[in-house]
Nucleic acid binder design. Structure first.
Lengths: 172, 172
DNA sequence: CCATTTAGTTTCTTTAAGCAACTAATTTAG
DNA sequence: CTAAATTAGTTGCTTAAAGAAACTAAATGG
């Protein structure tokens, strides 16, 4: 299957997807944001096999999204905690959650509520806006290349892919 | 492999992930938001095989995220366009993109720029805030169950899974 | 009207997903 | 203090999805 590694693509979405773009990683992150820390809690909440869970937690730790820490020094019991890098995924995750509430449930039938712990205030829908606070529609958006990177051509793309695969071979 | 179907989980993130939670779907959406419409354009930009691309486009159309339309009536040439449901994924995608810029590139070396077409204004970072506009940290967040759905127990989870698999068998 | 492009399909191989069973430490219960 | 249960995984196996490559039918371009 040789799942294509996207980590060298000159595209921030591709690289983000390479870190957290598979179904279980996203669900692990959802639970981590909800405050879950322990292997066994992730396991029962997700209903996932230990093998898959171990794989995901390990790569998320390798990617610096989570840290694995002993609950007390010298103990064989661990907690997986969000790093700064991990916490900053929250807007993306929450936006996905709000989309799921809107488009995959009947109105008002969402099984979860997001709020601020102290005050109980509800979260506002995540929106796109300019620095000055004006709301932006998708159709108003323009994605352009910066001079930090050349246009992605078919050739350079193929080269990156080949390189990624070679690196992979070298590792194993 | 029997990839677990998450579409019946009583969780908006799980259901969203079930629709767009694989790497290629997310990249297809990125391109769609960037204005790509044609099969061949997706193909060259993504560098993906025709088979995978066909699969993703088909499921995204089935899910109502894209629509497939002939470029002119009766023609065998098609365009894939974002629906309302698809356009509303933009905040999640853009948040992911901004995270990728921040955490997978050197500062200032992002290869893409997002701006408003008419005015050239830059997009602000996507943030979590309350209805009254106060910014919210992940640590302030509380995710609680509503009475629209019972707690997800290990049992009900297993039952949902079994049901999903039975439905799948019935289809094929 | 011949070559190319578009939008795919088919065939084949590799590899990851998922299940089930097992294990070595650590806690908890009686 | 010992037995049972829990925690945090590992190992082995099967199946299905990912990816590469080759092929195709209709439409377009020169």
């Amino acid at each position: 299957m040789t799942r294509t590694s996207l980590s060298r693509y000159p595209c921030p979405v591709a690289r983000a997807v390479d870190v957290i773009g598979d179904p279980w990683s996203l669900l692990v992150l959802r639970d981590a944001i909800a405050g879950v820390r322990r292997f066994s809690d992730f396991k029962t909440r997700l209903g996932v096999s230990a093998k898959i869970l171990t794989d995901r937690l390990t790569t998320l730790v390798e990617q610096g999204v989570l840290v694995r820490q002993a609950t007390s020094p010298g103990k064989q019991r661990f907690e997986y905690e969000l790093t700064e890098k991990g916490r900053e995924l929250a807007p993306a995750l929450i936006a996905l959650m709000q989309w799921g509430e809107r488009w995959t449930f009947e109105p008002g039938r969402s099984p979860v509520r997001l709020s601020v712990r102290e005050t109980g205030e509800a979260l506002a829908p995540v929106r796109l806006e300019t620095a000055s606070g004006r709301e932006v529609e998708v159709s108003d958006l323009e994605m352009s290349a910066t001079d930090a990177a050349p246009e992605i051509t078919r050739q350079s793309y193929a080269a990156l892919k080949a390189r990624a695969n070679r690196n992979k071979d070298a590792q194993s």
